[in-house]
């Protein structure tokens, strides 16, 4: 069974989680061009490797970030987005 470490609830089976896709920053809607907006809406980082991704713990309603290698499925680190943002 695959285990994911929820920053709030600790190690839980991966069936308790929902995958939310790549972490991306929203372009400024006041200045964004159509092409940049289309790129944001549709295109994704293609290079296989370690990705920052949104994950959601269904049972407790916790969104958090996981760093995961999408070739080996190895999860390197999980943390709350807010906690990390404060340190940046």
């Amino acid at each position: 069974m695959k285990i994911l470490n929820c920053p709030i609830n600790g190690p839980r089976p991966i069936q308790e989680f929902h995958y939310g896709g790549e972490v991306r920053s929203l372009p400024d809607s006041a200045t964004v061009t159509d092409a940049e907006w289309a790129d944001y809406v549709f295109h994704r980082a293609g290079e296989p490797g370690v990705k920052r991704e949104w994950w959601y713990h269904l049972a407790s309603g916790t969104w958090f970030v996981a760093e995961r290698d999408n070739r080996s499925d190895e999860i390197l680190r999980t943390y709350l987005y807010a906690a990390e943002a404060r340190h940046e």
Partner: peptide
């Protein structure tokens, strides 16, 4: 395997594997 090829030519795609 498309995303590893398109990255070589700098092409962005919506593909998710």
């Amino acid at each position: 395997w498309t995303t590893s090829i398109t990255e070589r030519v700098g092409l962005r795609t919506p593909l998710v594997i």
